[in-house]
Amino acid sequence: MKTRAEAIAFFRQQPDGVRPGLGYEVEAFRPGDAEGVSELFYRVYGDAYPIDMYYIPDAVRSAVELGALHPVVARLPDGRIVGFAALYRSSPPFAGLLEFGLGMVHPEYRGSLILFHLTNELTDRMTALPDVEAVFGEAVCDTIITQHSSALFGFREVALELELMPGGGAGRISCLVLFRNIRDRKRLLHAPGFCAGELRTLVAWAELDREVAVLGQEPQQAAATRLEVQTFAHAGVMRGNVHSLSGDGAAALRKAEAAAAAEGCRIFQWFLNLAEPSAAAGAWLLRQDGYRLGGLLPRWFDDDALLMQKLLDAPVVENINLYSDRAREILAMTLADPLGEPAG
């Protein structure tokens, strides 16, 4: 099974051998689990999961070997895999910041506590993994359950990604970003003046040791502009990292946004490195172009990031369910007028 198509064709021909009601063990992934993991993705998502790697056992094994994926699994006595959750490298440039997610349970075991035990196991393990310095999760806002559970596992709310994911009939789904630091040191943030107060609040909530220097609107230029941009056409989302901005920075940001819009993106996110004054100052440019505050993404670049976001369509606020006063305060921050007027 070397390709997604081969793997899906193979799984389609196999009867689902999982029997309900058996005991299981929850443990770290072993290389021999990869076939079962790929089959689980097929049993849970059919052929619809958007990332090819998870359907291909060798690719799963390789990601684990490279440290890009730290899975735990629920394994039946016969070795079949009926549950999966993982820490994994996703959009952050810093390899020490991993995303917590991919939790799934075989349909025959959905009434069990497998997902709870997977989460417990992963949370216990993550503090001991030497290459994992911090962890974040994106909790969907069509329900508060995941947000609340994440908080009970020690994660703190730091940002709100408006309308991030395509939803069902009720419209798009926003995601609350929750963060947990494991190993860190004191850092200096350059906070654009228009959101310095909000960033101080988020720093305090996330219990970070940070010195905040406030940046005015005066130009801050690095020697070169350095951006990375990803587009997720199926989700209509552009996501970009701003490491530094030079004199051509404003043009580069606008060019990237226009290119993403031409691909069909309607949600635009920039993550600005707050350790780099020129990158942080880019928030002033984005604000003029209609971007709103999204929040703080601690450790995104190893140093922290400021999330600025722009939506071509107004967010449907009634669809955003939030579990805490802090999360609702972040929503209010994101809804404030991009040019500084309170939301009305």
Partner: peptide, 26 residues
């Protein structure tokens, strides 16, 4: 549902100071 079961188990651990092992969870 399974998401609610997960949340309930976390809440039990936190509120009552108990640890639910896999064997107990079954």
């Amino acid at each position: 549902d399974s998401l609610a079961m997960t949340a309930m188990a976390v809440a039990v651990q936190n509120a009552f100071g108990v640890k639910i092992s896999v064997a107990e969870g079954l």
